[in-house]
Design a protein around this nucleic acid. Structure first.
Length: 792
DNA sequence: TAATTCGCTAGACCGA
DNA sequence: TCGGTCTAGCGAA
């Protein structure tokens, strides 16, 4: 039988032996297969024979065989101890400790060990031979089997408060799936083809149960189902005396509490994919950029489509006396948008799951560090290396105290520049790791001499042989990724295969880009400050070398940050000179380090810093020959600036860089200032968005965003860490904080024009205009408002 | 329980 | 009232 592995776990009810359960989608449907398994634990120590002898009498141990594994760079004898059940692991550890040994890999989950040993992974197609559901053999196979996918969403009735499952009923549930089912279940009669009206709330739940059981999806998408929909549904069902037996073994969803008080919800035999978790992750790695992560915003920015939005606080009212068709449509579109977003990222996550031998459920909830770590653990298994232990809390604290030097950022030359070439290193940190064999096990290792090592600019040395686990992994990852990118170039974008190839290379990119940060991450098993600081030291050296050589070659070096250089072409030089330079540099670089051509810009501007003192780093704008403007670091790209300031800044840059008409820019700014004074600016353009990052009473300095949040809280608005709030500076109050009010509490037209002129628009545009010789005074010339200007 | 350092700027805060 | 310092947030890479 052939199929795709959807989920792997072990029977939690059985405490005597370990029964691995593998849920496989086959052509006929999804089936559960079982296999008895004995998880392993390694024991290291001096007198292994004696320990082995004693261990054979310890409860739960089925075998203890001597074998060898690599511990860091050393091949050592270890005991491979097998257990009947993982519940014996704790006692084993204590017993081993008493015998003078130590356990290793006791904290790797049983399912993972099983998958490593069978050399299979979730989301992979496998061939299974089974008897009465018991696996005889399971092995990787070719081809694919389509999986079944669904999404659902709930609406609750709660008047002016957060819905509470103890009191507040579920009024609507929507369900969509890959078979084309689309349903909204509700208790009111609504005239829409997709609505199914039932009598009671209980029937909404049982109807949803039926849809899940009958359609039997392998993947269930939710949007915030971890924190909200699923815990709510489960508790509400219990309040009503119902169950939600969505698990493939008839179990209810399991709510797991992680450290930060966050919950995740697991459904046996299915992959509960909370798309909100994916979106948060994609925002963290910079793959998507929206300041609000609510479904409507994300749907718009990721897929470019709009959906109906009804504010949570309005749902109760619409339900009582509003347009029910709208509410039903909103509910349906929540499921549809969630489904479409999930489908957008599914290929990426399937690939990440395969690369790291993780279930879809797990991978969707991992951070970048966890992804790297599980990838390394998987590689360690294959290489016969024992996985390092997790650091103790004390160790973590000590590591966090230690900082190290990072990237080099060149002081830019302020002002306007023309004919700018940007060059950058392709995957700089990963290629440094590969070319210098940077690894926690090769750094300052005793088994090689300094002559057999790469010596970093800060003095750490790295044995050239053998290849470390990390550089070996990254070499594979980069090789594969570059091959995929080449393939993509030859493909048609409409080819369905294109998306898959794109997702594969994106998965590899995430891993490559996270490796360096992982080394400097205090909770990492493979933490190494020495490696992290050697990488940045080499990076500084290489980029500064390039700058020096560029100058010798005849370029003017304008700027550079971490892995890039901005060069000005001298009079009469064409872009081909840059390629000539690249060739020269690349001939000298160790493999696979490569300097690449990134772009040519006809004009660019670097601005003098607020306090004077030269040009600001990490803030500039470039425009290419087609007129495409690229703005970096400036107010325009920051969410904590009002739209009016950002919009004006962008327009000024267009006029200055694109059209070369600074006079027009000055005229334009003048007009905007008049508009602001005249009270013509709509509220949406005045909102400043800022994240509340802690509990409100824990702020030492109460900035405007905190002040606005406190006022809103007193009016009954719930403010929680992590929320992004939007506020407006009104006329009411003395300090800026006094005047700050959440946008919801600010009347249209109630804004402080002087604040928006002097603290928003002018700071965004004056540095640009000043670079061209204008002063603030020039903005008032000929203006009817001249006398109102306060220049002092 | 979950990647790093470098850098800019605002607005509050505090003491002279 | 002024100017320096500190807190806080966000972005670049």
């Amino acid at each position: 039988m052939r199929g795709v592995i959807i989920d792997v776990d072990h029977d939690l009810g059985n405490r005597e032996e370990t029964i691995i359960r593998i849920f496989v989608r086959t052509e006929k449907g999804t089936e559960m297969f079982l296999e008895r398994y004995e998880p392993y634990v390694y024991v290291i120590g001096d007198d292994l024979d004696k320990i082995a002898e004693k261990l054979r009498n310890v409860e739960g141990v089925t075998s203890a065989e001597k074998t060898n594994r690599l511990i860091r760079w050393e091949k050592r004898d270890v005991l491979l101890v097998r257990l009947k059940h993982n519940k014996y692991a704790k006692d084993l550890r204590d017993a081993v400790k008493e015998m003078g040994g130590e356990c290793r890999e006791h904290d790797i989950p049983v399912e993972r060990k099983y998958l490593y040993e069978r050399r299979i992974t979730p989301m992979q197609t496998v061939e299974i031979e089974a008897e009465n559901g018991w696996v005889r053999e399971i092995r990787p196979s070719e081809g694919s089997v389509p999986v079944k996918i669904a999404a659902f969403d709930l609406e609750m009735y709660a008047q002016d408060r957060m819905p509470d499952p103890k009191r507040d009923e579920i009024i609507m549930a929507s369900y969509v799936d890959s078979d084309g089912n689309k349903t909204v279940i509700t208790t009111k009669k609504i005239d829409a083809p997709f609505v199914k009206t039932v009598e009671t709330e209980e029937q909404i739940i049982s109807e949803l149960n039926r849809l899940i059981r009958e359609n039997d999806p392998d993947i269930i998408f939710t949007y915030n189902g971890d924190a909200f929909d699923l815990p709510y549904l489960k508790e509400r069902a219990h309040v009503l005396g119902l169950k939600i037996p969505w698990g493939r073994d008839g179990s209810e969803p399991r709510i797991r509490r992680s450290g930060g008080g966050n919950t995740t919800v697991e459904i046996t035999g299915r992959a509960h994919v909370d798309v909100f978790q994916i979106i948060q992750f994609m925002a963290a790695v910079g793959a998507i950029n929206t300041f609000k992560l609510d479904l409507e915003n994300v749907y718009k920015t990721v897929l470019g489509r709009e959906k109906v939005k009804i504010e949570h606080r309005d749902i109760a009212e619409v339900w009582r006396s509003g347009n029910l068709e709208d509410l039903a449509l909103y509910n349906l579109q929540d499921s549809e948008a969630c489904y479409e977003l999930g489908m957008e990222f599914l290929p990426l996550y399937e690939e990440l799951a395969r690369i790291t031998t993780s279930t879809l459920y797990n991978i969707v909830r991992m951070s970048t560090s966890q992804i790297v770590e599980w990838k390394l653990i998987q590689e360690a298994y294959v290489a016969g290396k024992i996985v390092p232990r997790k650091p103790k809390e004390e160790e973590v604290r000590a590591r966090m105290m230690q900082s190290y030097a990072g990237a080099f950022v060149r002081q830019p030359i302020p002002g306007l520049h023309e004919n700018i070439v940007v060059l950058d290193f392709r995957s700089l940190y990963p290629t440094i790791i590969i070319s210098h064999n940077v690894d926690p096990d090769t750094v300052n290792a005793p088994y090689c001499s300094r002559e057999e090592a790469y010596v970093s600019p800060v003095g750490h040395y790295f044995c050239k042989e053998p290849k470390g686990l990390l550089p070996r992994m990254l070499e594979e990852v980069l090789k594969e990724r570059f091959a995929l990118k080449d393939r993509m170039k030859k493909m048609d974008k409409s080819d369905p295969e294109y998306r898959i190839v794109y997702a594969k290379q994106q998965a590899l990119k995430i891993i490559a880009n996270s490796a360096y940060g992982y080394l400097g991450f205090a909770r990492a098993r493979w933490y190494s400050k020495e490696c992290a600081e050697a990488i940045t030291a080499w990076a500084r050296k290489y980029i500064q070398d390039v700058m020096k050589k560029a100058e010798e070659f005849g370029f003017k070096v304008l700027y550079g940050d971490t892995d890039s250089v901005f060069l000005v072409l001298p009079e009469g030089w064409g872009v081909e000179k840059a390629f000539e330079f690249l060739e020269k540099i690349n001939a000298e670089l160790p493999k696979p380090m490569t300097l690449e051509f990134d772009g040519f810009y006809k004009r660019g501007i670097f601005l003098t810093r607020r306090g004077g003192q030269g040009a600001a780093k990490k803030k500039y704008a470039l425009i290419d020959e087609k007129g495409n403007l690229k703005i970096t670091g400036m107010e325009y790209v920051r969410r904590d600036w009002a739209e009016i300031a950002k919009e004006v800044q962008k327009r000024v840059l267009e006029l200055v860089l694109g059209e070369g008409k600074p006079d027009k820019a000055v005229e334009y700014v003048r007009r905007i200032i008049d508009d602001i004074r005249a009270g013509k600016v709509p509220k949406e353009k005045l909102i400043i968005y800022t994240q509340i990052r802690r509990d409100l009473d824990r702020y030492e300095a109460k900035g405007p965003h905190v002040a606005a949040a406190i006022k809103a809280m007193r009016r009954g608005v719930k403010i929680e860490p992590g929320m992004i709030i939007g506020y407006v500076i009104t006329r009411r109050g003395k300090s800026i904080s006094d005047k700050a009010e959440l946008a919801a509490f600010a009347e249209d037209g109630d804004y402080d024009p002087e604040y928006y002129i002097h603290n928003q628009v002018l700071p965004a545009v004056m540095p640009i205009l000043e670079e061209l010789g204008y002063t603030e005074r020039d903005l008032s010339k000929g203006s009817a408002q001249k006398t109102l200007f306060d220049f002092t």
